[in-house]
Simulated scan of single mutants.
Amino acid sequence: MPPMTRPLRSVLYIPGSKPRALEKARGLPTDAIIFDLEDAVAPAEKAAARETLREALAGDYGTRLRLVRVNGLDTEWGAADLAAFADAPCDAILLPKVDGPETVEAARQHAARPFWAMMESARGILHAAAIAEAVEGFVLGTNDLARELGCETPAGRMPMMTALQTALLAARAAGIPCIDGVYNAFRDEDGLRAECAQGKALGMDGKSLIHPAQVEVANAAFSPSEEEVDLARRQIEAFDAAIADGQGVAVLDGRIVENLHVETARRTLARANA
């Protein structure tokens, strides 16, 4: 399955317990928001955060994709979170630490909603293909994954590459979006830009973010460049001209252009238009 055309370049975590942050998010140019009830909320605040977030979601977040990350069912808050957002105005529930499709099925017993999965454990990565068939999207939890693997996290992320690509392969096979993990040094724009470029090169749909200052960099990195758009248009034009002339392939800038290249070009233009 091809990557999605809906823009998911920037996917920003917002604590569900912070009314000011929830209000500010309405004006941020992020493509999607993860309203977080899990890691970003202290245990003593979790029940109150539930109500704060339900009130906030009644407001207008425009066309942004709205994901609510709940606590796991193995915690004292998970079942109540799912019940509270079973009918809330959000697009999907994001489940943490999904180790297999049974995690999703257990959540369905509490809420009949679309689900996304946090891919952040070794077991989850090994069951990525089965999980992908049970959910609407993946968000990579690279911090938790690195901790469980016991690997270092240098620039380039080579120790994590097998896990990143395994999750992406599963997402593509199922036809669902795959969002790259966070970049922790939110003041390091050059580092973020490099990691976004790597994620885009791998085929990720966008980047999960921990700070509003990261949104602009992610949006730019995951948007088709002017050069990519120009090439896509010229590939389509060259191929259409070749077909009209009775040819099965075209040649553009010294390179063969086949139908598969045209499909990629059309997706590039669809992304740019979206």
Score class of each variant (00 low, 15 high):
Gly199Gln: 04
Ile125Trp: 09
Ala272Cys: 01
Val249Asp: 12
Ala272Val: 02
Arg255Pro: 00
Glu216Tyr: 06
Ala58Ser: 12
His261Asn: 15
Gly191Trp: 03
Trp116Arg: 02
Asp188Phe: 04
Gly59Asn: 13
Met1Tyr: 11
Asn219Tyr: 04
Ala56Tyr: 14
Trp77Ile: 00
Lys200Arg: 15
Val70Arg: 00
Glu133Pro: 09
Glu216Ala: 15
Asn184His: 13
Asn259Lys: 13
Glu23Ile: 02
Arg193Asp: 14
Gly100Ile: 05
Pro3Thr: 15
Ala79Pro: 00
Ala86Glu: 15
Asp188Ser: 07
Arg69Thr: 00
Leu202Pro: 02
Glu227Cys: 01
Glu258Met: 09
Met1His: 11
Ile14Glu: 03
Arg267Val: 03
Glu55Trp: 08
Leu126Cys: 05
Leu164Trp: 15
Ala58Phe: 03
Gln109Lys: 07
Met1Val: 10
Asn184Ala: 14
Ala220Tyr: 07
Ser17Tyr: 07
Ala170Ile: 08
Gly248Leu: 08
Ala134Tyr: 09
Asn71Pro: 02
Leu53Met: 06
Gly206Gln: 06
Asp91Ser: 14
Gln198Ile: 03
Asp39Cys: 06
Arg234Pro: 05
Ala32Asn: 10
Gly206Cys: 01
Val251Cys: 02
Ile236Tyr: 04
Pro96Thr: 05
Arg113Cys: 01
Ala107Asp: 10
Leu168Ser: 01
Trp116Phe: 14
Gly175Asn: 12
Leu8Lys: 05
His127Ile: 03
Val217His: 10
Cys178Glu: 01
Ala84Gln: 05
Val41Cys: 10
Glu45His: 13
Ala42Gln: 10
Leu164Thr: 02
Ala40Asp: 08
Asp180Gln: 11
Glu76Arg: 10
Glu76Val: 13
Ala86Lys: 11
Thr142Pro: 03
Val262Phe: 11
Asp87Trp: 06
Glu258His: 09
Val135Thr: 04
Ala58Asn: 12
Val251Trp: 04
Leu82Asp: 12
Ala185Trp: 12
Gly175Leu: 08
Thr264Phe: 11
Asn143His: 09
Thr103Leu: 00
Arg271Cys: 05
Ala265Cys: 06
Gly16Ala: 06
Gly191Cys: 03
Lys200Phe: 12
Thr268Ala: 00
Glu105Cys: 03
Ala132Tyr: 06
Ile256Asp: 02
Gly248Tyr: 07
Glu148Arg: 01
Asn273Lys: 11
Pro19Ser: 09
Gly137Met: 07
Gln165Trp: 04
Ile93Lys: 00
Thr142Trp: 06
Arg108Ala: 04
Gly191Glu: 12
Ala146Glu: 08
Val217Cys: 11
Arg157Asp: 12
Leu149Ile: 05
Ala42Arg: 15
Ala220Asn: 04
Asn71Trp: 06
Lys200His: 14
Leu28Asp: 06
Ala80Ser: 12
Leu65Met: 10
Arg234Lys: 09
Gly59Ser: 13
Glu23Lys: 14
Val98Met: 05
Ile125Leu: 11
Asp60Asn: 15
Ala155Ser: 08
Met119Val: 14
Ala44Gln: 14
Ala84Val: 12
Met158Tyr: 11
Thr75Ser: 15
Trp116Met: 08
Thr264Pro: 02
Leu65Lys: 03
Glu216Met: 06
Ala112Ser: 13
Leu22Asn: 03
Val249Cys: 13
Glu51Ser: 11
Asp190Glu: 15
Tyr183Phe: 15
Val257Glu: 08
Thr268Pro: 01
Gly248Phe: 07
